[in-house]
Structures are given as structure tokens and as C-alpha cells.
């Protein structure tokens, strides 16, 4: 039983190593988006939440966090004056 598990772990590790290149675009998009949103947050006034609140959301909620910020978090685009 233990023997089988060891083989499994080896198999899993080689599989993950094989899949690694496929993660590159995903990681680029994820971190690129996060950095882009943080830059936008830094450059614009934030709406609804204080800036640090948005920063936490952008950093800790993958993809959705930055997107939500980009849709509703920027003050200039939603208000008139």
C-alpha cells in the first residue's frame, strides 16, 4: 500500500512538471492583471472603499478582485464632477 503511494507521488510530480509550461500564460495574466490594477489604483481615486481595502482585494482575490476594481472601483469614470 505504502509502496504504491510512493510511485503515485513520483508520477504526480512528473506530471506537474510536464504541465508547468502551460501555467506560464495563466500566471502572466494573473500577475499582469494584478499589477495593472494596482497601478490604476495608485493613479486614480478609489470609490466605495479606501485604497488599502481595494489593494487587499486586488492582491488576495485572484482575477475577480482586480476585475471588480476595474469595473466599479475607479472614481473618475463613475462620477461627473
Amino acid at each position: 500500500m505504502i509502496h504504491i503511494t510512493v510511485i503515485d507521488i513520483n508520477f504526480i510530480i512528473t506530471e506537474i512538471l510536464r504541465l508547468l509550461p502551460f501555467f506560464i500564460p495563466i500566471i502572466i495574466i494573473q500577475y499582469g492583471l494584478m499589477i495593472f490594477a494596482l497601478v490604476q489604483l495608485f493613479k486614480n481615486e478609489a470609490a466605495y472603499l479606501p485604497k488599502w481595502g481595494w489593494a487587499l482585494i486586488i492582491i488576495f482575490i485572484n482575477i475577480i478582485g482586480p476585475v471588480v476594481f476595474l469595473i466599479i472601483g475607479k472614481k473618475k469614470e463613475i462620477e461627473n464632477d
Partner: peptide
Amino acid sequence: YLILFIGIVFWALL
């Protein structure tokens, strides 16, 4: 564009 692109294309990768 960015948001729509991610909302549609990202899942194709993930």
C-alpha cells in the same frame, strides 16, 4: 477590452 478578454479567454487556459 481587458476585462472582457479575461472574462472570456482566461477560462480557456485555466
